[in-house]
Amino acid sequence: MSSSMNKYMFILGIVLLFHAAYSAAQHRSYLRLTEQEFTSLPADIVLQTIFSLLLAVFGVTMIAGEFKEIRSNIDLQKKTWKNLNNRPSFYTFNHRGHIFNPIAFSRSSSGKGALEAN
């Protein structure tokens, strides 16, 4: 529910931001037509810009996903020695694994045939 809310907030923010930009452009052209000096944008456009920017920023942060823990040891706390100490590139295969395999005895013969096939 909240994720769709965030999406709407983000879209609303962007739309409002564009609207503010459009209003600012309109204001400038109005000033040019009436030949007035430009001093500053009207307060409502400025307010709308700031508000919509904040809304869009908030929305996009919430859409981007879960926040990560800023303390670096929190993620590391979940690591276990069992997985950390497991090194796939240093596996050796002459361990007791083959004893538990029911078809272990055919390993040398079948292994040879397949290697030659490759």
Binding site: F93, G97, H98, N101, A114, N118
Partner: peptide, 17 residues
């Protein structure tokens, strides 16, 4: 790699080929 670890050569051969 898992098949080699269990010495399950049938599966290993299949994967390798």
């Amino acid at each position: 790699i898992a098949a080699l670890d269990c010495h399950n050569m049938e599966v290993a051969n299949f994967c390798l080929s």
